[in-house]
Every structure is written in structure tokens, then in C-alpha cells.
């Protein structure tokens, strides 16, 4: 079971969180004309990376905040966690 540092609550066990997928996906702006391809790639296309991955988790059974987690999908190593609005360099 992973041990994830919630930026608000501290180190917590994975079973308090739910996984939210790739955090680098940006939703197209509302009312913006975009191609079918762009929309499809937002809705469906995700990279299945082996290695370092920026992903979303929600601290569901805690503060209910969505957070960003830098995790290695192969080793499960967690490098860093960020608040949703934090700039990640």
C-alpha cells in the first residue's frame, strides 16, 4: 500500500485516496472551437507511461482535496506531492 503525503494532511495511506489519472491533461476551455481530434485526445487518449508520471489523487477520506503526485509507475516511488494550484517546475 502506497504512503502518500497529502500537502494538507501529511503522510496518509493509499486507502484514504482515490486515483484520478494523468494530471497533465488540460480540459479545453469552454466555448472554444476545437477540432474533433483535439477533443478526442482530451477525452480518450492517455499515455500509459512506465516511469515518472504526474498524476491526480483525491484525498477522499480526508480533506477531499485533489492533489498532484509525482510517482514512478514502475517502482511506485513518490518523488513529490503538490496542491492542485501549485506550479510544478
Amino acid at each position: 500500500m502506497l504512503h502518500i503525503k497529502c500537502p494538507y494532511c501529511g503522510m496518509r495511506s493509499q486507502n484514504e485516496f482515490s486515483y484520478g489519472g494523468d494530471a497533465s491533461v488540460k480540459r479545453p476551455e469552454l466555448n472554444k472551437e476545437i477540432s474533433d481530434q483535439e477533443w478526442d485526445s482530451f477525452v480518450y487518449n492517455r499515455k500509459s507511461l512506465r516511469g515518472k508520471h504526474l498524476e491526480l489523487w483525491q484525498h477522499l477520506s480526508g480533506c477531499r482535496q485533489w492533489i498532484k503526485v509525482e510517482r514512478d509507475t514502475a517502482t511506485h516511488e513518490i518523488f513529490n506531492t503538490h496542491k492542485a494550484d501549485e506550479e510544478i517546475s
Binding site: S18, G20, L56, Q58, W66, A84
Partner: peptide, 13 residues
């Protein structure tokens, strides 16, 4: 609820 929180926290903060 999670759906609303997702959009409020991440998409349209």
C-alpha cells in the same frame, strides 16, 4: 460530489 470537487479545484478554480 467528487465530480464537482474535481472541476472546482482543478479545472475552474
Amino acid at each position: 460530489l467528487s465530480h464537482l470537487e474535481y472541476y472546482l479545484q482543478l479545472v475552474w478554480p
